[in-house]
Design a protein around this nucleic acid. Structure first.
Length: 118
DNA sequence: AACTTGACGAGGG
DNA sequence: CCCCTCGCCAAGT
């Protein structure tokens, strides 16, 4: 499996599509849930090619900040879309993950089971 | 094949 | 909270 495989990317997109409006997930979190073969960096790489229908704006970094820095996507754009969904950001551009981070059904921080979504 | 660059993340100062 | 260093791994040169 690699980022070039369709299935590899589809797993990421399917998970992202499951994120409810007004909630977010982090790159590392997604990598951890998908498990073997996935890392925060590869998830980020896959996300730059997200097609329509994928709520890409709901994926942020582990600090609760937007990390589209040097890309074609302006940071303010992603943040404003999220704010429009109800996510509140501090003046420094950080949101409270405790409050907005979303976990798939039956998946808790405590358990270390990376193979529920396969 | 070597080297640089990231939609990253954890840890230290 | 900011900045830096590393580990990470795929892409582009």
């Amino acid at each position: 499996m690699s980022v070039n495989d369709k299935q590899y990317r589809v797993k990421v997109f399917d998970l992202v599509k499951a994120i409810p409006r007004g909630r977010v997930m982090t790159y590392g979190q997604i990598a951890m849930i998908l498990g073997e073969g996935y890392t925060a960096r590869t998830v980020g790489y896959v996300m730059h090619g997200a097609d329509d229908g994928v709520p890409w704006q709901r994926v942020i970094n582990s600090q609760g900040k937007i990390s589209t820095g040097r890309l074609s996507i302006p940071v303010n754009l992603q943040q404003s879309i999220l704010e429009q969904e109800g996510v509140v950001f501090s003046a420094k551009g950080k949101c409270d993950l405790e409050k907005y981070q979303w976990w798939p059904e039956g998946f808790e921080m405590e358990e270390e089971q990376p193979s529920l979504l396969n």
